[in-house]
Simulated assay, not measured.
Amino acid sequence: MDETPRRLRRQMASARPTEKVITIVSPCYQEEDNVERCYQAVKRIFDEYLPGYRREHVFSDNASTDNTVAILKEIARNDPAVKVVVNARNYGLFRSTFNALQYARGDAVLLMLPVDLQDPPELIPEFVKLWEQGYEVVAGARAERREGWVMRACRRTFYTLVNSLADFDIPENVGEFQLVDRKVLDAMLDHRDQYPYIRGLVASVGFRRIIVPYTWVERRNGKSKLRLGTLIDQALNGIFSFSSLPMRAATLIGFALSALCLLYALAMVVAYFLMPGVAPRGTTTLIVSVFFLSGVQLAFVGMLGEYVVAIHAQVRHGASVVERERVNIDEGEKNCTPHLS
């Protein structure tokens, strides 16, 4: 693996002033009612509770068509601590956020603070305090969710499934609202993933972690852009990105079903000669067998397809995100980002 990006990041880190920098990354899409409120909330928290730290706030916009970009540009024009990345199109939450993380220059980085503020920015001072105590990953856990029981049950099922398949643990209810040390972020950025599952990357690289529970509140303005299909896509990505167990299970189940079908066929042959009036005949048995095995085959082919699609995306080596413009970001900073075109 090319060590140039990591070496450049270390050189930039060593060139920082003694005042520690905390970076906040906020993805947004069609959030003209929330971006100003998010910016002011973070600024107020740093002014009141973190006066000894330097603030860096990176907004990543997924090609909004409302006034979100205009508001962000005005904020950045008046505050050099704010950086703005505007994507050429909507690349989804994780790809957009991971791309923005490559511009983070902080000694510690809050991986994701969505501008809807359902994850409370008031926890940032506590996160920083725990980071200063030696924890390299301070993870917020949504101990209480103000959402329906169906979504809570689906999320619980997902965490149970992914933790049983992966060879590392993703704590239940822990999302991307996590403050990580610089070396954790560097290890994450070394993963050249076209569809990064950020919380999985954090868990996979390890380091010392502490979990802070909090209440995930309801939105005050606007509507969530995450739909059920998007959540399912994220869940499948999390499962297939960090485990080969589904394919191994498919292989074992395929062998087991083949053996059972062979035994069934032998049993029917024996029954035909020994119990001709009892052995099942006709098309019903054949139809049931064919449809059952066809369903199993289609499920496993689909599972194989998930892996093939993931491999195809990786080997194409295209840019994970194409940017339209950047604000308050020097051109030289792009040299430290191996994923950008």
Results as ranks from 00 to 15, higher is better:
Ala249His: 05
Val270Phe: 04
Ser204Leu: 05
Phe158Ile: 02
Ala249Gln: 09
Ala259Ile: 05
Met151His: 13
Val205Asp: 01
Asp169Tyr: 15
Ala279Gly: 04
Lys223Met: 11
Arg227Glu: 12
Val202Lys: 03
Tyr272Asn: 02
Ser204Ala: 12
Ile198Ala: 06
Ile198Tyr: 08
Ala187Cys: 01
Ser164Lys: 03
Tyr195Lys: 13
Val202Met: 01
Asn237Cys: 13
Arg227Tyr: 10
Asp181Gln: 06
Lys225Leu: 12
Ile210Tyr: 02
Gly238His: 03
Gly229Val: 12
Ser164Met: 02
Ala259His: 04
Leu189Ala: 02
Leu189Lys: 04
Val269Thr: 10
Asp169Cys: 13
Val180Thr: 08
Arg152Asn: 11
Leu260Phe: 13
Leu245His: 04
Val278Asp: 10
Gln194Leu: 06
Asp190Gln: 15
Met151Ala: 15
Ala203Ile: 00
Ile232Arg: 14
Asn221Ser: 14
Asn163Thr: 02
Thr160Ser: 11
Phe273Arg: 08
Ala279Met: 14
Leu263Gly: 05
Met188Ser: 07
Asp190Arg: 12
Val217Lys: 10
Leu274Asn: 02
Ile210Asp: 04
His191Pro: 06
Gly206Leu: 02
Ser164Trp: 08
Asp167His: 03
Ile232Val: 15
Tyr272Cys: 01
Leu231Ile: 14
Leu245Ser: 03
Leu189Cys: 03
Asp186Phe: 12
Ile239Trp: 02
Ser204Gln: 11
Ile253Leu: 09
Leu161Lys: 01
Val184Ala: 02
Val278Met: 12
Ile253Ser: 05
Val278Cys: 07
Cys154Tyr: 12
Ile211Arg: 07
Arg281Gly: 15
Tyr159Met: 13
Glu218Cys: 15
Met275Ser: 09
Ser224Ile: 00
Gln194Asn: 09
Tyr214Ser: 07
Leu189His: 00
Thr157Ser: 13
Ser164Asn: 05
Ser244His: 12
Arg199Ile: 00
Gly175Val: 10
Arg155Ser: 08
Ser244Ala: 13
Ala271Pro: 05
Ile239Pro: 02
Tyr159Gly: 08
Tyr214Leu: 06
Ser241Ile: 00
Arg220Pro: 00
Leu161Val: 09
Asp169Glu: 14
Gly206Asp: 05
Arg281Lys: 15
Ile232Leu: 14
Val212His: 01
Phe273Gln: 04
Thr160Val: 07
Lys183Asn: 05
Ser258Val: 07
Ile253Tyr: 04
Leu228Gly: 11
Gly254Met: 09
Gly175Thr: 10
Met268Arg: 10
Ser258Gly: 15
Leu161Ser: 04
Leu274Ile: 09
Leu260Gly: 06
Phe242Arg: 08
Leu185Phe: 09
Gly277Gln: 03
Ile239Arg: 00
Leu257Gly: 00
